[in-house]
């Protein structure tokens, strides 16, 4: 396929393209410059945690990867394919990119199992029975198979978020994006969601995780991206980032969150 032809710049020669590649990405909300010249490559299988103070652009970056936020300039490629404009091609790309939201966003009028089967049936054209079978396996895996026929509002936040992860996994995505998956959860439910994410990371899923969970970043991430004011300020391993941050912004950030 056109993996090479579309690549901007000649950095990646031969072999497989990175799972995600962002080059010179700029994004504005009105006058506000929320992403400033972002360059980022995520190889397959890597778990990247994006940290940063609120308003640093980390959520926007995450949402830009499947074009829920269109960017103003630059290019984003997923698995060697540049993001298409709105339409069929974009829908097809999104089907391959799993997304988990801060507010879960389970479809309120559908039961948990219907939430999980909708994508496979309508997008992947799987049969209802085969989709249901996969859905039940996934729900089993995230530990809420017994809640399959309930509606989202009847579940706890942690259960809803695990259902949302199952819904994303049902599409057999190449990469998973997590946009602050535990920020809306009660403290006692954070761990169950992080455990699900950790096991996913252990299985080799490519993941981009925007989070404030430092424990998860230390334990499960291969790489930490620290963003501030729309820029990537640091890009290092979790150990380096937490023990020896280079920039003042990162030192300041870590000082604030690790002391309380």
């Amino acid at each position: 396929m056109s993996t090479e032809a579309s690549g901007s710049g000649g950095a990646s020669t031969g072999t497989t393209p990175p799972m995600i590649k962002a080059a010179s990405v700029d994004k504005y909300f009105g006058d506000l410059h929320v992403l400033k010249d972002i360059n980022l490559e995520v190889p397959r299988g890597q778990v990247v945690v994006v940290l940063g103070p609120s308003g640093s652009g980390k959520s926007t970056l995450c949402r830009a990867i499947n074009r829920l936020e269109p960017i103003n300039s630059g290019t984003i490629e997923v698995d060697g394919e540049p993001l298409p404009a709105e339409g069929k091609a974009l829908a097809a790309l999104r089907a391959d990119v799993g997304m988990v939201f801060q507010q879960f966003n389970l479809f309120s009028h559908k039961s948990i199992v219907e939430n999980v089967t909708l994508g496979p049936v309508k997008v992947r054209k799987a049969s209802q029975s085969e989709a249901r079978e996969t859905a039940m396996e996934l729900l089993e895996r995230v530990g809420i198979a017994d809640q399959a026929d309930k509606y989202p509002a009847q579940l706890s936040g942690g259960q809803q978020q695990r259902a949302a992860i199952a819904r994303a996994l049902a599409m057999k995505p190449k990469v998973m994006l997590f946009d602050e998956p535990t920020s809306a959860l009660d403290p006692e439910m954070v761990q169950e969601v992080l455990d699900t994410m950790t096991s996913l990371a252990d299985e080799g899923m490519t993941m981009v995780v925007v989070t404030h969970e430092m424990g998860f970043a230390r334990r499960a991430a291969h790489r930490v991206i620290f963003m501030a004011d729309g820029e990537v300020v640091e890009d290092s391993t979790p150990t380096d980032f937490f023990t020896a941050p280079k920039s003042d912004r990162a030192k300041d950030f870590l000082g604030k969150i690790l002391t309380h």
Partner: peptide, 30 residues
Amino acid sequence: VPVGQAEAARALGLNFGQVLRMIVLPQAFR
């Protein structure tokens, strides 16, 4: 209908018509 409902549907790869028909309108009607 919260924006997140349509966003989640689009993120699954549903097209505009499907999002409207399967997710947004059923909730809007109710």
